[in-house]
């Protein structure tokens, strides 16, 4: 070994230095360990604190909401305004449930086709338009939802002169859903392995056939998950629909009619003077939360099961 080039001039180990370092570290070791335990405990505490609001909220929802939704006619009747003679009359929320379904249906019809196509475009194109649309979609996805309401009000209600209607509300929700669908579609399409595309191209298929017949089916799970999450987000939004749907008290599926929606009923009942309405509001909230949770949980479970199957 001695014939190797000796690059190293090793200094003599300095035993004084070593002792001094060991002494210091021995002295502070216990303090460091206590500090570590303390801080780690604080972190664990923070995690449990995060869980507290969810549990409190869910408890309140079920505790106060369950009796309400078991009440006859809650799902089937139209709302009644209480008055001095019948202060406990509340009726049901059929108009809000139908309104929420109508709004999300029309919003999906508007947002899904465009959103998925744009997502595919972003994933497959390298143009400047694609790059700027990517930034735009990410910025829009975080935009305050009240702004969608302002947009729908100015454009649909006033400029197009359509008035307060389900159409205006679903337009606002569609604008809200669009970027979410675009982003999740792009991620899903990008996640499709290149080998799959290349195999298709190698077999002589035209690029657009590969895109439609191979890439889209492979990315379907991710795309559908994104769509469900977008819908579940839209269903719970109050601010945009507050400004434009008009709060109709009838059951209507027509796009030009004013409608109500679950979040809107919650907002309005909560502020009501009537105790009976403020009791009923917990039932509506329970329905809405169950709605949203079922949607987002099923999206998540479906996505993870598909992932495992792969």
């Amino acid at each position: 070994m001695s014939d190797m080039i000796d690059l190293v001039e090793s200094p003599e180990p300095d035993t004084n230095l070593r002792d001094e370092i060991r002494q210091i570290s021995d002295r502070v070791r216990r303090r460091r360990q206590l500090r570590s335990k303390f801080m780690i405990t604080l972190c664990a505490l923070a995690l449990s604190v995060t869980a507290v609001p969810l549990f409190l909220l869910l408890y309140q929802l079920f505790d106060r909401g369950l009796p309400v939704i078991l009440h006859t006619g809650f799902f089937t009747q139209l709302p009644q305004t209480p008055n001095l003679i019948t202060p406990n009359a509340t009726g049901g929320v059929s108009n809000a449930i139908i309104g929420t379904l109508v709004l999300s249906l029309y919003a999906s019809i508007m947002a899904i086709p465009i959103g998925v196509l744009v997502g595919v475009y972003l994933a497959e194109s390298v143009s400047k338009l694609a790059a700027s649309l990517r930034v735009i979609s990410q910025t829009m996805a975080g935009a305050p939802s009240i702004l969608m309401g302002l947009f729908a009000f100015s454009f649909v209600v006033r400029d197009l002169n359509i008035g307060f209607s389900a159409l205006a509300g679903s337009f606002a929700l569609a604008v809200l859903m669009l970027p979410v669908i675009v982003i999740s579609t792009e991620i899903a399409v990008r996640g499709v392995p290149h080998t799959l595309r290349e195999a298709g191209l190698a077999l002589g298929a035209k690029p657009h056939k590969v895109s439609m017949k191979i890439v889209l089916p492979a990315a379907l799970t991710g795309i559908v998950t994104g769509i469900i999450l977008a819908i579940s987000r839209a269903i719970g939004e109050t601010a945009p629909v507050l400004l434009v749907i008009g709060g109709g008290y009838i059951n209507s599926w027509k796009p030009l009619d004013p409608v109500s929606a679950l979040p809107l009923s919650i907002y309005e009942n909560a502020k009501s003077e009537w105790p009976s309405l403020r009791t009923e509001v917990w039932g509506i909230a329970l329905v809405l939360v169950v709605f949203v949770f079922v949607l987002s949980l099923s999206a998540r479970i479906w996505a993870s099961r598909k992932q495992q199957a792969r």
Binding site: L7, V8, E9, S10, P11, D14, L17, E20, I21, I24, S25, R27, V28, R29, R31, R32
Partner: peptide
């Protein structure tokens, strides 16, 4: 050294030089 609570600059400087020398 810092992880182990050594803060004194003279010790740190000396240790840095010694160890960097040892590592060529």
């Amino acid at each position: 050294l810092r992880f182990n609570g050594v803060k004194k600059k003279s010790i740190l400087d000396e240790a840095a030089e010694t160890s960097l020398k040892s590592a060529a």
